[in-house]
Amino acid sequence: MTQPVWTPPHPLSLEWKGDYLALLDQRRLPAEKVVLQITTAEEVREAIVHLAVRGAPAIGIAAVYGLYLGMRNFQDGEEDAFWQELPRLVDDLNAARPTAVNLSWALKRTAAKVETLRSRSVEELKAAILAEARAIHREDAEVCRRIGEYALTLLKDGMGILTHCNAGGLATAAYGTALAPMYLAHERGWKLKVYADETRPVLQGSRLTAFELQQAGLDVTLICDNMAGAVMKEGKVQVVIVGTDRVAANGDVANKIGTYSVAVLAKAHGIPFYVAAPTSSIDLGTPTGAEIPIEERAAEEITCGFGKATAPEGVQVYNPAFDVTPAEYVTAIITENGIVDPRDKEGLRRVVLHKQTIAEK
């Protein structure tokens, strides 16, 4: 398949520059467009932990480049040391954020590929890691576009769409997952009206989604998280589309905290609630949403967000980064291989197992 042309009005979330990884520092948006030059695995890990790069597909891609950066100084003749370090580094990068399954998926895929080449030289093994990172990066752009094309079949020109968090080009290699149909609709001249929840406490909706959609010339309106029900009741929203960090085998969906509330509101108002998910986000090894590990982040994100105290010192804080929406609240899951009812376990398995890489096609 041909890689889609993607010319966003902002720097790409990440680019491989030959000897370093360029990461758009998403902590600095929208005020500043700062691109980090990442040269070590530890810098990649820190960028993932501290949200310089975020979004499930993007952190998976970044992690595999990080694996290459961490292994690239090994030389021929150091095979034993190479094979000792590789699994340790995979585990270290995988621990950076526990909820997004794309992170472990990308690292496991790469490690499995390298394992098939165990008899090769260290130089060949390093080249294989970099090649796999670039393949995953390239495939993600095509996967996102295909998700967008399937999602377009569920939309109509003039619709109002609500989205939560950021599942756009900034969270992926290109296009995004939940935002992909909005970009494709814009290319076709459709006039969609997008409502972006601010997404507390780190404000990915206001800092990132509103930023990238506005930069691309789409009609976007920012709302506070607690306005979602009101805009639904007012008839401004006809559909909700969100991304995901992990889908369990029973169709339960983990996504940015607040997604569950939006899903409940959508059901109460009779509004379809769609989840845009690459098949790499569907975890058939996790039976239900109850088994999805939920990352809990620092209290300061709530009590002192962006450097200003907004809560009394010493107050107790509960700050899970994600919540789980039960499958019964999800109208459909939109993947690059088609649209599936989340309660159809065999359907979920089918879209995952029928996945083919771009190279295989």
Rank of each mutant, 00 (worst) to 15 (best):
T2G: 04
H10L: 06
S13I: 05
W16V: 03
G18Q: 09
G18T: 14
D19W: 15
Y20Q: 07
Y20P: 05
Y20C: 09
A22F: 02
L24Q: 02
L24N: 00
D25I: 15
Q26M: 13
R27T: 15
P30E: 14
A31M: 04
V35T: 11
L36Y: 11
A41L: 06
A41I: 04
V49F: 07
V53T: 13
I61L: 11
V64H: 04
Y65F: 13
G66A: 13
D76H: 11
G77Y: 14
G77F: 10
E78W: 12
F82D: 06
P87R: 07
L89A: 02
D92F: 14
A96Y: 10
P98F: 00
T99C: 05
N102F: 00
L103Y: 02
S104H: 01
W105Y: 09
K113G: 03
E115K: 13
E115C: 01
E115D: 07
R118I: 12
R120P: 09
E123R: 05
K126A: 12
A127W: 08
L130E: 03
L130V: 01
E132C: 01
R134Q: 14
E139A: 10
R146C: 12
I147P: 08
E149F: 12
L152W: 01
L152F: 04
T153R: 14
M159E: 10
G160I: 12
I161M: 10
T163E: 14
T163V: 10
A167R: 08
A171D: 06
A173Y: 08
A174S: 11
Y175N: 00
G176V: 13
G176D: 00
L179C: 06
A180C: 03
E187N: 08
K193W: 02
Y195R: 10
D197I: 13
E198H: 12
T199M: 06
T199L: 07
V202K: 03
L203F: 13
L203I: 12
L203K: 11
Q204G: 03
T209R: 15
A210F: 06
E212K: 08
L213P: 11
Q215W: 01
Q215S: 08
L218W: 05
D219S: 11
D219L: 06
C224N: 03
C224I: 11
D225Y: 09
N226S: 04
M227K: 04
A228E: 10
V231C: 07
E234W: 07
Q238T: 02
Q238A: 09
T244V: 09
V247K: 01
G251E: 01
A254Y: 00
T259E: 00
V262G: 05
A263G: 15
A263H: 09
V264H: 09
A266K: 02
I271G: 14
V275G: 13
A276K: 00
A276N: 01
A277S: 15
T279C: 15
I282E: 01
D283W: 11
D283N: 13
T286R: 02
P287K: 08
P287A: 15
A290M: 07
A290R: 15
I294K: 08
E295T: 11
E296V: 12
A298N: 14
E300S: 15
P312Q: 10
F322Q: 08
F322H: 01
A327R: 03
E328A: 05
T331R: 06
I333Y: 00
I333H: 00
I334W: 08
I334C: 13
E336F: 02
N337L: 10
D344N: 15
D344A: 02
K345Q: 13
G347R: 05
V351C: 09
V351H: 04
V352D: 04
T357C: 03
A359Y: 04
E360A: 15
K361A: 07
